[in-house]
Design a protein around this nucleic acid. Structure first.
Lengths: 337, 337
DNA sequence: TTGTACGCGTTATCAG
DNA sequence: CTGATAACGCGTACAA
């Protein structure tokens, strides 16, 4: 058994509540008394039992982070995590990890009802529908939450996302200016809202440039390691393969590059490839990958800050959409058609 | 206020304790009574308050994971994390995150005394001394803990590590067989024990091959992003630069490759580079990086399993050292001297 | 300024 | 088989 407030109470001959007050900085405690208590605290090596404190205070100073099962394989997620972790540390909160419930969201409800966290951050991207289901469920509970890395159409749910449309538009503009006509899109329908927005920007850009949309130039790359390789291979089997590829994200783009290189193609001369996210890996592959830079860490920090505000004020702050920045690298650089 | 056991008690007209027993599967409860209680539970949407339960049970079903501040930038750490996360989920435990205390380990003591976790996993690698200090402190507490990814010389502290010596030896053997005479080592003294072991294997291998050790062929690459670039540059300034480089880990090796390529060198013709860890990135860079494969995920899982055993039995299981496997890739492949 | 008493939600013990 | 009672460790109106 650890040393508790009761032990101190006995040791200094004061009541438990006096000790408690002294420790919690109440003003109605004699300076001398406080001194005595603090000394005993030091001497006995007392540390408040957070479980008991939480039970009493009805909060835990902990934030739950819910993430898709394979998050630790995605550098995008890790970028978000970094931000959340940093912000949490700064504000004296700890993080409790929960993998997103594959099917039943019952687990989530349990977490809310059990009050083991003061709020939750849902890191976006998950199998289609799962995130939506989770959101729906959480709306029925009182635990505040924010969604990170994924726009949410449901009103009143604060989310932190990047400007998918503008990001992909800048990419498309880059390709169109280079004279590309056959531009493909490697999709991730699993990541519903993000994909929808990026796909839409892709289509709109084509339309604006009066280039007909071709369904054969859209191939799926699901959220499994190296899925982009198979997707790209399929794309290259087309009799008139694309000259440029917009990948859903950098992981897919990197995979796509590998697949193209393995086919003996030159990047960007034969085919240009671009991604989304500006993850660390996009800088170390050959060729380096042109991408849409997204402030992952900052978004994570903002998600935390937003949640904190919800916890403190009880109100839902506005969602935030971060603007992006085109980063042109070798994978698209030298192509001039 | 959430619905509590008391509400159910009222609703079904049974005492609180009977309800509790029914819910916890005690055998001395009439089947019918249990049925009634379970139904009410369902109807009222009851979920046990874990904080209260933990206070009573004196445990939290949570494991603390302590990691160095920049862990989310290291794929090695992420590999460990994956394993820990998976194992925790499988065993119904949740993870609470703590960044390793930079200086004062007082925070760690607080965590132990406050009993907010049942045990802790210290993910190795941190600024020199910090991990040692933490271990020393934790030994004075009763919270069980294991160290992951870092051998520990202190007896009675269970750790999960990879076989550094054998790993680097296999790498050195590979280089020596190719005829390399000038082999360099990019060190990371911060990661004390791992580095010591790898460095030692490097030196021993040289000695065995009767190649004199040269201090100029050892350069530091601290635990900061892209530190390997500067280290490699320094190495290449040597009038007689090495023909092969053993990097502390894959991140450093990848950096080293970049630096060499930027200098216009060919890999592996001009200089061969090998790393340690077999992280995902080592497979997607150009050239792909020869490395020592380490079962990161499995190590994480084992760390968790070991800790669980400690929690359940109160005894300290043996440490485990995982054997490694040489993975030869393009960065060393074609060199034949 | 200090102490008393109670409650947070749960579980364990012991009578009945 | 069921229920009253205490206890886990802490915080806070209220009384003294």
């Amino acid at each position: 058994m650890s040393v508790s407030i009761k032990d101190i109470s006995k040791h200094v001959g004061l009541s438990v509540s006096t000790v408690s007050k002294a420790l919690n900085g109440y003003s109605d405690i004699a300076a001398e008394t406080r001194e005595t208590v603090l000394k005993a605290t030091e001497k006995l090596g007392y540390h408040p039992n957070t479980t008991a404190r939480n039970l009493r205070r009805q909060r835990s100073e902990k934030i739950g982070v819910v993430y898709p099962a394979h998050a630790f394989e995605s550098e995008i997620m890790m970028g978000f995590f970094r931000g959340v972790v940093l912000a949490a540390e700064e504000h004296g909160y700890n993080l409790t990890l929960y993998t997103a419930p594959a099917a039943d969201s019952e687990a989530l409800r349990q977490i809310c009802r059990s009050r083991e966290v003061d709020g939750m951050i849902l890191i976006g991207t998950s199998l289609a529908g799962v995130l939506q289901a989770s959101i729906k469920l959480l709306q029925g509970e009182k635990t505040p939450f924010v969604v990170l890395g994924h726009p949410v159409s449901t009103k009143k749910v604060p989310f932190i996302a990047s400007d998918n449309e503008a990001g992909v538009q800048s990419l498309m503009k880059h390709f169109l200016q280079q004279g590309h006509k056959r531009i493909a899109y490697l999709a991730r329908s699993d990541d519903s809202e993000n994909n929808a927005a990026r796909f839409n920007a892709y289509k709109q850009s084509l339309k604006k440039a009066k280039i007909p949309f071709r369904a054969e130039y859209v191939v799926e790359a699901p959220f499994t390691p190296y899925s982009g390789i198979a997707a790209m291979k399929k794309l290259l089997e087309h009799p008139k393969p694309p000259t440029a590829v917009v990948a859903f994200n950098d992981h897919v783009a990197i995979d796509a590059c590998r697949a193209a290189l393995e086919r003996g193609l030159k990047i960007p001369e034969d085919i240009a490839v671009a991604g989304y996210g500006n993850i660390p890996s996009s800088l170390i592959t050959t060729p380096t990958v042109t991408t849409v830079a997204v402030p992952l860490r900052e978004m994570g920090e903002t998600a935390f800050a937003t949640l904190l505000k919800m916890i403190e004020t009880g109100k839902a702050p506005a969602s935030k959409i971060f603007s992006t920045k085109l980063v042109v690298r070798a994978s698209t650089l030298e192509a001039t058609y």
